[in-house]
Design a protein around this nucleic acid. Structure first.
Lengths: 373, 373
DNA sequence: AGAAACTCCGAAACCGGTTTCGGCAACGGG
DNA sequence: CCCGTTGCCGAAACCGGTTTCGGAGTTTCT
């Protein structure tokens, strides 16, 4: 049953210096060294610096596994990725992980990740991870408006940091992009180009960001002195296909919009798909703006104007916030916001000169393509 | 310095059942229980089943951290993601991680991930990870033709499994998609539509897959009875911009290709960009086929025909193979291949009827757009 | 000067496991 | 019947840390 070979000790363990090595070199006991390094008050300052110096010189790094069995802390932060049907967080993942692991390793921490198929699983997986000391707490990506994970972790007294602002975000530490500002900004830009009828295509309202972006859109309209027309807002869309249908609906009216603002790039793709299918020229016949700065935005033609968030920075900030929080659970909440950067693209332009002509053009096109579903 | 509150024990540790609990319930010593569970030969079969039964009944799960300090195994598999400049592995990541973590958690393992900026860092990071018992070994994504990681891990006697086939893949365990077959398949399909001049746009040759796909392209041409024309092959391309330039070069000749086969979807995007910029209609004027099945492929218009690999399955297979390997380092190498699935798209069609006319059309278009760089 | 308080460190228990060693009992052979 | 195996388990050391306890030496106070 057991592998009878174990020459690995040769090449694997030789370099590791243990606390016993350190204590012998210093002529102290393990206990004293441990207390010196962990900031106990009953160690003289001279001894402490002596220990710390020697630890650095000898390259001593405590084995987090060994610490964990006594302290319960394994110095690893957890991330449970939910693979819900129409998740849009994929492209960001690599950059986000880069930021996270970077911040983590700077403090000697590591990142443990798991995946889950649904929200219910997530809670169980998180419980197991902290129970088995595989994670000391969690980064919560893609926060929902009413997020069960928050209540759960609060109840379990497990540290966490949110990426996004939940409904009750006053009581949580979070990091987020100010996407509502981006939406307002987009409306202002479109209005500046002369657009009067700017539609909004939003995603499922259980996502926290949906609320913020919708509100940003509305605020943008008000600032621009434009009316809020409910007929120009379609929400709860999950995938490009649904966004395509919504686009058709928006353009089939008597007063179709000349620009469509999308909550995500993924939804903007649906707008493109429909526009392409009926031969509408994006950027001239119809302006489109997305949000996320995803790779897909650059793959579209003309390039989709969008807002990209620096996900590496987000990951790094979340990692730092988390570790700080674990180190002091009583510290005040940390809440940080950044702005997404606008990425111009050929998808925006001035509205067609004569809106009526445009409407006729569209209705004719639509009549030709009634079969589209 | 230390947090003086520790009521967490209440809600965190209460459920955990230790090996001592188990041994007391069974009226055995810890040592006996441990040996019974770990398959030592000096335990009677009756005792063993009694222990295993009780362990299951009481929900005993050994704390991997505690095991690790003695055995050196932490039951976590490592993944170091290299964020090189023009990495194309982002879209796959989520699905790939899903497969990996799924396979891992099935065996009670977890996934520790780290990121690195360059190849040199990767080796150091891997060394640290195994040194600190954060990982028992590694999955190597995006294997290079001559991969330093392989030699390194081999030297360090650390288990690993490759995702991809390196130059010396005879001596490694790997999982991979048979992308060379996909390339041949694509050529066959294009030839079947009547294409005679099929170009190939390949990526950097330090990637292992570049060699395979190029060879697949060549084999496909031979099978179709077409000549291999070096003028129709441009390789070592890293980004869409370079692919766009290559496309221009290919189309500027006297006998331009009517179809372009791309080693990756990312490169196909460059072909689209150039074609769009000069008003070429993809699917009729020029056929394009990619590889990867990335989200970008669906964002392009017309949709890019491509080959998608089931990255979740790949992750799951790699995870299983890895754990099996760790459990028995002396087992024979495992080598597994799957086929990528063809995803049709509007980017392929029959070649233009009169190639000469097409060439003239192109040269005229190109003349109009000499400024393109 | 003596008692009280304080500083600082050693000794040892502990965490949750694994692994070595030795011995008791049953068994088999001569 | 005695002795050498063998099977099976307990005892105890160990892994690399943390944490409690107590006591020796020094300082402070009266």
């Amino acid at each position: 049953m057991k592998t009878d070979v174990k020459p690995d000790r040769r090449s694997r363990d030789n370099a590791r210096v243990t606390i016993t090595d350190l204590s012998q070199a210093l002529n102290l006991t393990k206990g004293t060294v441990s207390r010196a390094l962990n900031g106990y008050p009953d160690i003289s300052e001279t001894t402490r610096v002596r220990v710390i110096r020697a630890a650095q010189a000898m390259g001593y790094r405590p084995l987090s596994q060994a610490q964990a069995i006594k302290t319960g802390r394994s110095c690893s932060l957890g991330l449970v990725i939910e693979l819900s049907e129409h998740d849009a967080h994929r492209p960001f993942l690599a950059e986000f992980l880069a930021g996270l692991t970077q911040a983590a390793s700077k403090e000697g921490w590591t990142l443990t990740i798991a995946t889950s198929e649904c929200e219910g699983d997530t809670l169980g997986i998180m419980r197991d991870l902290v129970h088995n000391r595989k994670a000391d707490g969690f980064i919560l990506p893609r926060v929902l408006w009413n997020d069960r994970r928050i209540a759960f972790l609060e109840r379990e007294n497990t540290p966490y940091i949110c990426y996004g602002r939940a409904n009750n975000h006053q009581n949580t530490s979070y990091f987020d992009a100010r996407s509502e500002s981006s939406m307002s900004e987009a409306v202002a830009m479109l209005a500046g180009l002369g657009h009067k009828r700017i539609a909004y295509i939003g995603s499922a309202s259980h996502y926290a960001y949906s609320h913020l972006r919708r509100d940003g859109y509305r605020a943008g309209l008000q600032s621009a002195g434009l009316d809020i027309d409910p007929a120009l807002m379609i929400e709860e869309l999950l995938c490009p296909e649904e966004a395509a249908k919504a686009t058709r609906q928006l353009l089939s009216t008597n007063h179709p919009p000349t620009a469509i603002l999308c909550a995500t790039d993924m939804l903007a793709r649906g707008v493109y798909d429909f526009a392409n299918s009926i031969g509408l020229k994006i950027g001239s016949d119809l302006s489109v703006v997305g949000y996320d700065g995803s790779p897909e935005a650059r793959a579209m033609w003309p390039r989709l104007a969008t807002f990209s968030v620096d996900n590496r920075k987000a990951g790094a900030a979340l990692g730092e916030m988390f570790i700080a929080r674990v180190r002091n659970m009583d510290a005040p909440l940390q809440q940080e916001l950044i702005a997404a950067e606008f990425c111009p693209g050929g998808s925006v332009g001035a509205p067609a000169k004569t809106p009526d002509a445009l409407a006729q053009h569209m209705s004719r096109l639509l009549a030709d393509h009634m079969s589209f579903d």
